[in-house]
Amino acid sequence: MTATKTGGPVAARAEEIWKVYGSGEAQVTALRGVSAEFGRGRFTAIMGPSGSGKSTLMHCLAGLDTVDRGTVHVGGTEISNLGDKALTRLRRDRIGFVFQQFNLLPTLSAAENIRLPLDIAGRKPDPQWWETVITTVGLSDRLAHRPSQLSGGQQQRVACARALIGRPDVIFADEPTGNLDSRSGAEVLSFLRSSVREHGQTIVMVTHDPVAASYADRVVFLADGAIVDELADPTAETVLDTMKRLDTQTDPVML
């Protein structure tokens, strides 16, 4: 089985999506008919070894990459057939991003970086929500600083705040703790989890760190471009066990 479903409302959905890179001998099939649903207000982690297709899956869900076959829906909109203009709008208004490499603009202050998606759209932040976000990420006294004056953890918290500020349908986080020490990583992850628990934000996070995955409500495991397992309410131990088990199997398990 390569499909995974959740009960309740869906924020993003992939149906039978295929993604093939290159051609001829260099051809690599990154996704082979993946179907998955990501529930609204849920924190989902996508795990898998390198080359399993987890990043590709996220990129396709986020409208950063196109699928070769199958459909992707974000918040009820099918995005697999949208052009660049519509995709840009979608990213701007309905999707938030947190990247491994913080990816802040060095010319802008922390506050300006957080406001960037709204500024691009020409919208004003809701003052109340702004206060909430700033307080939650604990950056009130750092707002005028440039990224170069912030620590890695602070930068990533700015990036998280930037993703949250527009209240997108989904936030996609790509290895958000990959470049952080464990303490800063824990801060960022707690912050992401609390935004789900307290504000009903939907988050999809790609990671290869079992500890990071344990912050999620649910973990989806990928191997060789297909979903091979999933866990609800994971702990670091159960995630690690599942991964070990998957490592020893040569073929994808059928669930």
Binding site: K85, T88, R89, F97, N103
Partner: peptide
């Protein structure tokens, strides 16, 4: 890339 990702259009 980041700017485009967060919604800056062409």
């Amino acid at each position: 890339g980041l700017l485009r990702a967060v919604g800056l259009n062409r």
